[in-house]
Amino acid sequence: MARIIGGLTTSHVPSIGGAIARGDQQTPYWKPLFDAFTPIHAWLEEMKPDVAIVIYNDHGLNFFLDKMPTFAVGAAASYDNADEGWGIPVLPSFEGDPDLSWHMIDSLVADEFDITMCQEVLVDHAFTLPIKLMYPNAGPTWPLRTIPVMINSVQHPLPSAARCWKLGQAIGRAIESYPKDLKVVVLGTGGLSHQLDGTRAGFINKDFDLLCMEKIVSDPVVLTQYSNRQIIELAGSQGVELMTWIAMRGALQGKVSTVTSTYHAPISNTGGAVMLLANEPVATLAAAE
């Protein structure tokens, strides 16, 4: 059976792509973010996940306002990155896992999540940069297959935190009912607090970010109780990317522990946060007893 071995959250600030292109990883501004991935590289090397489910928000590369799904799941054999208009390098294509995608889609819809199914997805920085951070030396191919899961963060009304939590739980059930022996890691990319628009642009809330990082491990249900208005007030208008973290955490149904956790602000306009959570599936725990 497929197993979820861990969850990874990271900010996906576009300027990370610029920093990589310039080789700025060890400059004082960028070092705390890039160094946060050193223990993650060791974990990935040891665990060798086969597939990453990448829960993220599209920023106007793949979806436009003509048709804006609340939740969408990729079902392609590969996913291309593309020009987003402001000049970060385009990364090599990512291999998909269409069989697992269709299993997830079947399972999610049966579970009353009426997601949009996509056989073509252009994946933007929120998908590509976290994988590049995980595997900085990979290329031109990546060492694992990927499935994009997109949560609308462009056009309100957005789904609630509670709904994203339930989506994550349904993704967890989908993966763990897949008969192939696969090791799966679930990514939630985005956040934490930031705001790009309005006279409150530049708002960062370190205290709230640190609270989220604590609760996402120990008591994630607390985070599902915020309304979207409260999240915007506390984390800024783009802080709603916290939804991707909450969905990721919903998919981890075993015993969850922190492998590594780093907070550094600001990264560009954002409270930069990186966490790797190990998930020991309940079945494994039961077998060990």
Partner: peptide, 16 residues
């Protein structure tokens, strides 16, 4: 439903 209007300094992109 959330009322997302009138958050100080914070435009929220709704249907309108």
């Amino acid at each position: 439903m959330d009322d997302l209007r009138h958050i100080p300094g914070t435009p929220v992109f709704q249907g309108e």
